[in-house]
Design a protein around this nucleic acid. Structure first.
Lengths: 146, 146
DNA sequence: GCAGTTGTTTTGAGTGATTCAAAACAACTC
DNA sequence: GAGTTGTTTTGAATCACTCAAAACAACTGC
């Protein structure tokens, strides 16, 4: 294993994106990776564990930079603050719980292509289709049935 | 034409929804109807024309009440304040311009039903699918083409 | 028509999420 | 190891919206 070249780790991906490698960035990347959908406060809470003294403003700066660089994806469901996830590149969709606002990924819609093709695009040159499903998460279903 | 019964006008619809008929409500209903997608400020601007002295707070109250009553629909595209439209009942979708945030209706997606059926719903009991298309509106395409 | 009740609007203040700006600081370059 | 440039921090400000209490106006029943 080469020490410098063969790493698709966090530092390498930051460099590849033309960003300087800093402790807050590594910490944010680590905090978001594999932890679903986090808002800025939740990211700060996780980052504070490994890097105490980090400011919320820095979290916003870092999240913005990483999102612009394509290393994170930002979603903004109605009624929720912005959420960040590490799964980028595939344009997957989301299910949001109408009761507790939990969010889960939806791999893709059954009929895949149709969702990228509105019947009438009103003169818009469309490049993305974003699908948000709304429903009750498993926990809330159970609590309401209970 | 019966003066009281045969009207599906604004006052009648308010009463049918169990709401009192007030000047601000009629003005808001009128302001939103047939004027696309307006945020609270834009509604206030229109209402102020016919009903000067109306407060922004009242606009929020009214928009909330009318939305709860199903007389208006609220959408919240990422990066925009909440927008209100008068077209309710059909669950139509929207195209948003990534440059100027203009919004247009999209009657329905080509493959209709697939969009309501995610391949894996992560245990959620889904009741709505919301589709937002992102692209460049006609005006912005023209301006960028120069 | 008029008083009473209840829902609505106004006024004023407050909050949460996010952004702006300037100064202190730390990565990378040479 | 010094310089340059991009980052982070600190502190304040903004935007969209909500909360609460008091003033007010619609509908009800008489």
């Amino acid at each position: 294993m080469d020490t410098e070249t063969h790493r698709d780790d966090a530092a390498g991906r930051l460099r590849a994106a033309g960003l300087k490698v800093t402790a807050p960035r590594l910490a944010v990347l680590d905090a978001v990776s594999g932890h679903g959908h986090l808002d800025a406060d939740a990211v700060l809470a996780r980052v504070t564990g490994t890097l105490p003294g980090t400011s919320l403003q820095s979290i916003y700066n870092v999240l913005g930079a990483l999102t612009d660089a394509g290393l994170l994806r930002r979603i903004e469901p109605a009624e929720s603050p912005a959420l960040y996830e590490s799964r980028t590149g595939d344009n997957h969709h989301h299910v949001v719980c109408t009761r507790c606002h939990a969010v889960a990924d939806v791999d893709c819609v059954v009929g895949e292509p149709p969702c990228l093709a509105p019947s009438d695009s009103a003169g818009f040159a469309i490049h993305t289709a974003e699908v948000t499903f709304w429903g009750l998460c498993a926990d809330c279903q159970r609590e309401l049935a209970g």
